[in-house]
């Protein structure tokens, strides 16, 4: 797959960056949640505990990785006109696989993630990576990109999950953090808490960005 000597100047930028950059971009600079604001539904819905957040993040990362790899390797085979439909098919397949895998691992976890495993299909993050990156890059590059984005997504989910679980249930990954009698902030595990926590994380990111811009 080294037919990429004829790239336009527009994509040259991507080539210039090293592989490490491809990976790190998704993790931090173009973080899918905090910067690109993609895939919000699971970010809000299943981050009421750290465990759920982690599981969801990993599941998404897995689907992202697999579909990126497949899309990238099939990119010369899929005609442009049916590419979106094909990507959806591929993604849906891996989501179904993940769904069964999680059910096999733990019924309890599957229950608490609920329909949101299935809803990974419509996570805009995955489709947008397939469309914007995997369909134009080598398998290796796409893998790195998926890994970066996946880890970034998981990281973001954990950011929310940890805050919501610590305040909302007084524990982290199910382990109690505080002495008995801690007052749980129940709002944090309610839907509204999801909105607020994400809003505040975005706010912190903005402040950070602003600080960096001024210094």
């Amino acid at each position: 797959m080294n037919k990429h000597t004829d790239k336009s100047g527009f994509f040259a930028a991507l080539e210039d960056s090293s592989s490490a950059d491809t990976f790190l971009r998704g993790l931090w600079k173009d973080n899918p949640v905090f910067v690109q604001v993609l895939g919000m539904c699971p970010v809000l819905a299943v981050t009421n505990t750290s465990m759920n957040a982690l599981a969801m993040g990993l599941a998404t990362a897995f689907v992202l990785l697999m579909s990126n790899v497949l899309v990238s390797s099939l990119r010369h085979f899929i005609p442009k006109q049916v590419r979106i439909a094909s990507y959806i098919l591929i993604i849906a397949t891996f989501v179904t696989i993940t769904d069964y895998a999680i059910m096999a691992i733990s019924v309890e976890l599957h229950k608490s993630l609920g329909a949101f495993i299935s809803l990974i299909v419509v996570n805009c993050l995955i489709l947008s990576r397939a469309e914007a990156f995997a369909s134009k890059n080598t398998v290796g590059q796409s893998m790195l990109d998926a890994l970066g984005m996946g880890v970034g997504f998981t990281f973001a989910l954990l950011c929310l999950g940890v805050v919501r679980e610590v305040l909302g249930s007084g524990s982290i990954f199910g382990f109690g953090l505080f002495p008995d009698g801690f007052q749980n902030w129940i709002v944090m595990i309610l839907p509204a808490g999801g909105f607020f926590t994400l809003a505040i994380w975005l706010l912190l990111f903005n402040i950070l960005k602003q600080k960096r811009a001024t210094t």
Partner: peptide, 15 residues
């Protein structure tokens, strides 16, 4: 197009 899509569909079903 037909070939590609059906091919992918079959592969997916198998998986």
């Amino acid at each position: 197009m037909l070939f590609a899509m059906v091919g992918i569909g079959l592969m997916c079903a198998l998986l």
